[in-house]
């Protein structure tokens, strides 16, 4: 059901925009890092879908969980099979909005502070999240960076007692996206 709402939101978000206002990437980089006394866990995903409407400030992310690459194969296996259960919940999504878009001039190159609020769905559990970041506006791209933290327990991810000391309860999430204007020919076909 949530997927249905997300698709409707994406369609509304994108179909209401006009040429030159939709910026996208399919090579967004998201990684997470957690440190516990016995274990540091980090994984990277470089094929993240993201879209931003610079008129409304709306932002959407879609992240395929099986695309997170870990240094250790065993960690990757446990992440997919035991914690995230990526076979049943293959994607994480974020849909939100830049809440201070009045302070960002997308027509003038520069680096702007951004405040983002939205709903993050992981493991079929949705929570409200707030994050801060920067948007570097250049004539070619909008380069967005952000870092925020989540608690694994908030997403119904159960950590067995036997490994509880190895896995931190908080996970830092880093976002690095280079958004390009969606080319007008694609947009005409899509609409």
């Amino acid at each position: 059901m949530k997927t249905k709402y997300l698709i409707i939101t994406i369609i509304v978000l994108l179909s209401t925009s006009v040429f030159g206002q939709r910026y996208i990437t399919k090579t967004g980089h998201i990684w997470f890092h957690s440190e516990a006394p016995l274990e540091t866990i980090e994984a990277h995903n470089s094929q993240v879908n993201a879209a931003m409407d610079i008129k409304t400030g709306a932002i959407v992310f879609k992240v395929l969980m099986k695309s997170f690459i870990f240094e250790k194969a065993l960690m990757q296996e446990h992440f997919n099979e035991n914690y995230i259960e990526s076979t049943f919940y293959p994607n994480a999504t974020f849909q939100g909005k830049i809440t201070n878009s009045e302070n960002i001039d997308f027509s003038t190159p520069g680096t702007y502070n951004a405040e983002i609020t939205g709903e993050l769905t992981i493991h079929n559990v949705t929570n409200k999240v707030m994050a801060t970041g920067t948007l570097e506006v250049t004539p070619e791209i909008i380069h967005g960076k952000s870092k925020f933290s989540i608690q694994v327990a908030d997403y119904n991810i159960r950590i067995p007692d036997v490994v509880a000391g190895k896995i931190a309860e908080d996970v830092d999430i880093y976002v690095d996206i280079q958004l390009k204007e969606l080319n007008k020919e694609s947009l005409k076909s899509a609409n």
């Binding site: 997927t3 399919k26 879609k62 395929l64 990526s86």
Partner: peptide
Amino acid sequence: CAGYNGTD
């Protein structure tokens, strides 16, 4: 194959 993300 990591799967399908709704677009790719």
